[in-house]
């Protein structure tokens, strides 16, 4: 008598363990999307329908590419392409032409992710790679920060520029980001901290309100859906390094200004913590985070660009395979402080 006969049903033969934690990749991804909703809502509140359009275009670019080239697996439902789209949209300016946002999404997913084999196999954060591509391809459009509009529903800038054509934003009212203003401005004044926290400043869609990003990030950290070591190490190292340079008189940015301005919050809580492109061990995460912090401070103070979070994270993404190699866990039973490096592979 077999189980099957007895049960008149399908018998399950599986390998141990037979119980699993309730955690699932799909659930992690969608809760990241969920936690991004307040920030998205804030960007719509601040920038009006332009925010909806730009975020929509980048999400559309990501989802479409994922759907067309993402392979057999139902690659949309895992939510990772949605995150990429949202994050990419959130780090673009409100007046950005939609066709460019769409291309950013296509590039990010296509060449940042699918070419490496899809979900979980990419080296660079797809959203940031898309953003870096846009920065290199359309440097003017992506640094044109629209100023305040007379009414909420007025489009900021030239969202509807024809594909492959320039936005006519040359004579639009532009505002400077707090970072850019303090660095390149003719009348460098540090934006008040409260404005940075609430997000009533000019900048990319999602990087304005540090407070909401912090809330979303902390929610994820509590749920265990992001590795808190990374944002904490980034923020601590940015605070420490910028503090040292500020105190030495080498930088105009006070540590708190550094923390809450620009894309640091979004980058630290959402971009750097992308599980796929961050190190796997805690030691690795600290190395990763502290290096990002240092690079951010260096690029912000001495670099040619006002903002360096994106490049800092991308550069460290490239180093992650190396960090992973170098920070293998200690072999059980071997003395402490003596990690089992890959060097042993040699012999």
């Amino acid at each position: 008598m077999s189980f099957k006969e007895e049960k008149h049903g399908v018998v399950k033969i599986t390998a141990a363990p037979h119980v699993r934690s309730a955690e699932s990749t799909t659930r992690i991804m969608w809760s990241v999307v969920l936690s991004l909703l307040p920030v998205t809502a804030a960007s719509i509140w601040f920038f009006g329908p332009s925010a909806v359009l730009v975020i929509g275009a980048s999400v559309a670019g990501c989802l479409l590419t994922e759907r067309l080239f993402g392979g057999q697996r139902n690659s949309i439902s895992d939510g990772s392409a949605m995150i990429t789209g949202l994050l990419l949209g959130l780090c673009l300016p409100a007046g950005f032409p939609l066709w460019m946002a769409f291309i950013g999404g296509v590039f990010g997913i296509g060449f940042g992710k699918i070419i490496f084999g899809g979900l979980g196999q990419n080296i660079f954060n797809p959203a940031l790679l898309g953003r870096a591509f846009l920065q290199a391809a359309f440097p003017v459009a992506i640094t044109t920060w629209p100023g305040p509009a007379p009414d909420w529903w007025v489009l900021r800038g030239d969202n509807f520029a024809l594909p492959f054509m320039s936005p006519g934003a040359a004579d639009a009212v532009t505002g400077a980001t707090p970072l850019g203003n303090l660095k390149f401005g003719d009348d460098p004044v540090a934006t008040p901290l409260l404005d940075l926290l609430l997000g009533t400043t000019s900048g990319s869609l999602g990087e304005t309100s540090a407070l909401l990003i912090l809330l979303g990030g902390i929610y994820l950290a509590i749920r265990g859906h992001l590795n808190w070591h990374i944002p904490v190490s980034i923020l601590v190292s940015v605070f420490a390094f910028s503090g040292v340079f500020y105190w030495l008189g080498l930088s105009p940015f006070s540590p708190l200004f550094m923390l809450f301005s620009g894309g640091l919050m979004l980058g630290a809580w959402y971009m750097a913590t992308d599980m796929v492109t961050s190190p796997v061990t805690h030691t690795g995460c600290w190395v990763f985070g502290v290096s990002i912090g240092l690079l951010v401070v260096i690029i912000r103070i001495w670099g040619g660009l006002p903002e360096g979070v994106m490049y800092a994270i991308l550069l460290m993404n490239a180093l992650v395979p190396f960090i992973n190699r170098a920070t293998q866990p200690r072999k059980f039973g071997s003395p402490r402080g003596k990690p089992e490096p890959a060097a042993e592979k040699e012999s």
């Binding site: 440097p139 003017v140 640094t143 040359a170 390149f184 040619g304």
Partner: peptide
């Protein structure tokens, strides 16, 4: 005063 190029301040 020299008007800098937009986007190419450096």
């Amino acid at each position: 005063e020299i008007d800098a190029i937009t986007g190419a301040t450096i």
